[in-house]
């Protein structure tokens, strides 16, 4: 990452930034600076070119910095001219509060990513809303595209805490009922529940005409199972305890994780739902790229 801004794509760096708005800004700027130097240059979502101001254009679109340099009026010409309403769906289950390495928890990773996406969408003048759920929807903000709305979203995100049990399928069904217009629903969850009901709920959401991106976030330890020796594992949600020989169980576990991910990937692909497997050690750009690809399809 040659550009200094790109360092903020790393979770271990961004965790040192306490303010969520700054986190969002740094992640997006790092991501965009990476994109400018990348083959995905055409994805520039800020603007693609300037054109001369013509009467009837919105005065707020005039680029005053260009006017200051050239003494002529130019307006920004955005590549994505259509608006897409986005919803950030945050899973508040206790398992989302887990971290093994004592860096970003899954939830912190999720809200950082959500904040960045929110920031990005607002920058594109796309309305973005927020829904947080555990066993049911706990918090919600309607989608708006104003910059002041981003502050609200970030404020709510910073306030959210992963609590106890969760019911993802019920919550998704509830969300499905809540959203009236075709929207882009971005689900941030670890999916640590029975897969079938979740998949059904997502399918329903999809059938309601929404575009869905599932950001499947696991802790790095959940993805790699780095333990050794005899370990006593406890599920923080259920309190269930299992004693295993870590080395012996690792292969089995990774097999289970892969099967778990493959199942979601396969089923969601059939439903034309984007599935982005993540873990808390991964840079944020992968998640953002997933969003942009989806956004491009809609544009």
């Amino acid at each position: 990452m040659a550009n200094p801004a790109e360092k903020f794509l790393k979770p271990e760096v961004i965790r040192n930034v306490s303010r969520l708005d700054l986190r969002a800004k740094f992640i997006v700027e790092g991501f965009l600076s990476g994109l400018h130097a990348s083959p995905f240059h055409g994805f520039s979502v800020e603007f693609s070119e300037h054109r001369k101001y013509t009467p009837g254009d919105n005065i707020s679109d005039i680029d005053w910095s260009v006017f200051a340099k050239t003494d002529r009026f130019y307006v920004k010409r955005f590549q994505a001219e259509t608006n897409l309403t986005g919803y950030l769906l945050m899973d508040l289950s206790a398992s989302m509060g887990y971290t093994y390495r004592q860096e970003l928890t899954k939830f912190e990773y999720a809200i950082s990513l959500a904040a960045a996406l929110g920031y990005l969408m607002v920058q594109q003048q796309d309305p973005v809303g927020l829904i947080a759920f555990d066993e049911k929807v706990r918090e919600s903000l309607p989608p708006k595209s104003r910059r002041t709305h981003l502050a609200n979203i970030l404020s709510v995100l910073a306030r959210l805490q992963p609590t106890g049990l969760t019911d993802i399928p019920a919550s998704i069904r509830q969300v499905s009922r809540m959203i009236r217009h075709r929207s882009l629903v971005m689900l941030f969850t670890d999916l640590l529940a029975d897969a079938e009901p979740i998949l059904k709920a997502i399918h329903r959401l999809r059938h309601s005409g929404h575009e869905v991106i599932v950001f499947h976030i696991l802790d790095e330890a959940e993805a790699d199972f780095p333990f050794q020796g005899i370990v006593e594992l406890e599920d923080p949600e259920t309190g269930e305890i299992l004693t295993v020989d870590a080395l012996g169980a690792r292969a089995d576990y990774l097999e289970s994780v892969n099967a778990f991910r493959d199942q979601y990937k396969r089923d969601l692909f059939r439903a034309r739902v984007d599935y982005v497997p993540l873990h808390t050690g991964m840079p944020f750009d992968k998640a953002l790229m997933g969003y942009l690809l989806s956004r491009q399809r809609k544009g």
Partner: peptide, 14 residues
């Protein structure tokens, strides 16, 4: 005593 570790993905291991 084995090391006690919280592990939400226990269901996958079970």
């Amino acid at each position: 005593k084995p090391k006690h570790i919280f592990f939400p993905a226990l269901r996958l291991l079970k």
